[in-house]
């Protein structure tokens, strides 16, 4: 993949706005709203960039301070941002060994993350410590398939959260990986892991059908795809559930060249994305929503708009 210049140099969003602004000039045209989802996964306590010592392909990459600048730049360009993390915030540098994840959460708060899900390594300091970190942070920790029983996390972890982003109702929920064999038992106590697909579909359906969310986003730490079908994965989850629109994944440290699309069991498309690990990349998904008085989608069929939207995409791959 070619290296991108950063958001200001890209012109990506600046091209989107004149387009949207031009729509009302079409007679009785619908209002278009944009939501920008920004996401990370498996940052693994990579607070500072990898040492710029020429050792290995990651030298100099990542780091919270540059990520924060990029996020701020994007926030200046677009109105509605949802900033998400798909778990394994902890473990991988001495920052975690010495400060137990305190700094990781502080920095995410400063960057104004909206929500995260729990990765297996987020238990590495124990569920009690994770609870303390969540208490001190203002973003939400989401998981729908861990039966938290007597864990202190029960007081703070929610299955889902609904965000109102400029009139767009976005339901975000979390799904976690099995803990047995991945996390020492004493670190997660009596937390029971419930079937991922079943709980994901139940939560997504509640968000779509009862809560009437316009968009349902799943934060998953299951992993992108496995050789063995015995391990739940994002690809299989997408295909075997309904009512999920977007899966932001983690765990397998997968650097996707582009987001993948999979048909769910109703034949609807699900977008799956994952951006490697260690904060080397920031993912971005822009959703354009049409708000109108008619049941018919104006812009979905509008050739002018389709053409214009396609032109805003910079071909970089």
């Amino acid at each position: 993949m070619k290296r991108r210049t950063f958001v200001k140099a890209m012109g990506y969003s600046s091209m989107m706005y004149p387009l949207i602004g031009s729509v009302p000039s079409l007679l009785k045209g619908p209002e278009l709203m944009q939501l920008t989802i920004l996401h990370t996964n498996d940052v693994h306590s990579r607070i500072e960039p990898f040492p710029a010592d020429g050792k290995g392909r990651n030298a100099g990459k990542g780091g919270a301070a540059r990520r924060a600048t990029l996020i701020k730049d994007i926030r200046e360009d677009v109105d509605q941002v949802l900033l998400l993390d798909a778990g394994d915030i902890f473990q991988g540098t001495p920052y975690f060994n010495f400060f137990g994840g305190e700094l990781e959460f502080k920095l995410m708060d400063e960057m104004e993350y909206d929500a995260a899900t729990i990765g297996n390594h987020d238990f590495d300091a124990g569920h009690e410590v994770l609870k303390e970190r969540c208490d001190a942070a203002s973003f939400s920790m989401l998981n729908c398939n861990y039966n938290l029983k007597d864990s202190p996390l029960r007081k703070i972890v929610q299955p889902y959260k609904i965000f109102n982003k400029g009139g767009i109702k976005v339901g975000v929920f979390g799904v976690g990986i099995r803990l047995d064999g991945l996390v020492p038992k004493q670190l997660y106590g009596d937390i029971e892991v419930l079937p991922a697909y079943e709980m994901a579909e139940k939560t997504a359906t509640l968000l779509k059908e009862e809560e009437k969310c316009d968009l349902v986003v799943c934060l998953s730490h299951l992993g992108y795809q496995y050789e063995s079908p015995n391990y739940p994965s994002d690809v299989i989850m997408a295909a075997s559930t309904r009512n999920i629109d977007i899966i932001i994944g983690g765990h397998t440290h997968t650097f996707l060249k582009t987001a993948n699309t999979v048909r769910d069991k109703d034949g609807e498309w699900v977008i799956i994305n994952q951006v490697g690990w260690a904060g080397i990349m920031l993912g971005r998904i822009d959703v354009t929503i049409e708000k109108g008085k008619k049941a018919k989608c104006f812009s979905c069929k509008n050739e002018y708009l389709q053409h214009a939207v396609d032109n805003t995409i910079i071909k970089y791959k």
Partner: peptide
């Protein structure tokens, strides 16, 4: 009021000096 997901685009940034 009707809301439609009209379009989705994706992008990714590499974070480096």
């Amino acid at each position: 009021t009707y809301l439609h997901v009209a379009d989705i685009n994706e992008d990714r940034y590499e974070i480096e000096p």
